[in-house]
Each structure stands twice: as structure tokens, then as C-alpha cells.
Amino acid sequence: MADIHIEEFYKDAAVALVQLYNAFPRRVNLFVEDIAGADQPDEFGLHSKRHMACFGTLLWLAEEGFLRYVDTIRQDALDQAVLTQEAFIRLSAPAPDTLVQQFGEPENHATSPLPPSLKEDLSSHIHLVRTVLKSRHSLRIGHVVRATLFTDK
């Protein structure tokens, strides 16, 4: 069993990357609440550990070259965030066939094969990330995010 904070990291990273991919190439504000859920700061105005972990994930993605941003909005959001070229290319690229077979949507097209362009879209890393996010299965999310983020360049 994986550590819960690592599972949350993978989910937060996946949600953030999907949001940025969906907006690409526009710059958008990336709000922690939209990724990790609502937060109730304590009586001193400090955010929860969960909120701060998600904010840390966003900063880590930036430090590792997956996204750029202009500034932080307190500890609530990244202002004018956008995917880097490397992240966009990686998310758009076809995933390995073994990953697609294991985590992609089952093909129910035996009688009419998919056109090559659609087949390519359905085998991209971003499509797999979206698919496993819908499943809400933390082990699958972790596996696909690891394969997406930590593959050789």
C-alpha cells in the first residue's frame, strides 16, 4: 500500500496537468481548491496539510519544468500558469502500447476499426490520464502519472 500523500500527489498532478492541457496555450489561474477541494483555514488563517500538499505539488511541477507561472496568489493558486513545451509534447505523445492496453478504455470496435488519427488520440498520455482520473482508482492514477512524468525524455 502506497503512502496516502504520494497517492494524493499523483492525483493532484494529474488534475493540474489536465486543466492546463485543456486550456493550452492560454495562461490560466490554477486554484488549489479546484484540484484538492475546499479548504477551511484554521483560526490563525493557516491552510490544512492537504491544501498545502496540493500547493506543493503545483510548485514541484513548475520546478521540474512541467509548467510555468507568473506568480503565486498567496498559497491559493498559481497566477497565469501554462504547460511548458516539454510537458505539452509529452502529454500529447502516444503512450507505450502496454500502458494503453492496461489502462486505456476497452476497445469495443472489433467490427469497425478506429481511424488512425482517432486511435492515436486515444493512445496519448493525456487521454490515459483523463481515463484513469475518471476511474478514481488511486493505483491506476499513480501508475499512469509515473509513466507520464518520469519517462525518458
Rank of each mutant, 00 (worst) to 15 (best):
S92G: 13
A87G: 01
A87K: 05
S92E: 13
V82I: 11
D76Y: 00
V70T: 14
L59C: 04
P113F: 13
A77F: 02
E107Q: 15
F66T: 00
E64R: 02
S92Q: 09
E63T: 13
P94C: 14
R68I: 11
A95T: 09
A77R: 03
S48V: 03
H51N: 09
H47P: 10
E120P: 08
L118M: 12
P96V: 13
G56Q: 06
F88D: 04
D34M: 10
L46Y: 08
P41G: 07
Q85A: 13
C54S: 02
P94R: 14
K119R: 15
R50T: 11
P116K: 15
L114A: 14
E120G: 08
I89V: 15
F88C: 12
P94W: 09
V32I: 10
R90T: 14
V82W: 00
A93V: 15
G56R: 05
A110T: 15
L91G: 08
F44T: 02
Q80T: 04
K49I: 07
M52Q: 11
F103V: 06
G45F: 06
S92W: 07
D34K: 08
L122N: 01
I73W: 01
R90Q: 13
P96W: 14
V100L: 03
Q85K: 15
G56M: 06
L58F: 12
G65R: 01
A77W: 05
P94H: 15
W60D: 10
T57L: 10
T72G: 03
N108T: 15
E107V: 11
L99W: 15
S48E: 07
K119T: 11
A38T: 10
L78E: 01
I35P: 00
Y69Q: 08
D97Q: 02
F103N: 03
G65L: 00
L118D: 12
D97V: 06
T57F: 10
I73N: 00
L61Y: 08
Q40F: 00
G37D: 07
M52I: 05
F44G: 00
V70L: 09
W60N: 03
D79E: 12
P106D: 01
N108Q: 14
A93Y: 11
R68C: 07
A77L: 03
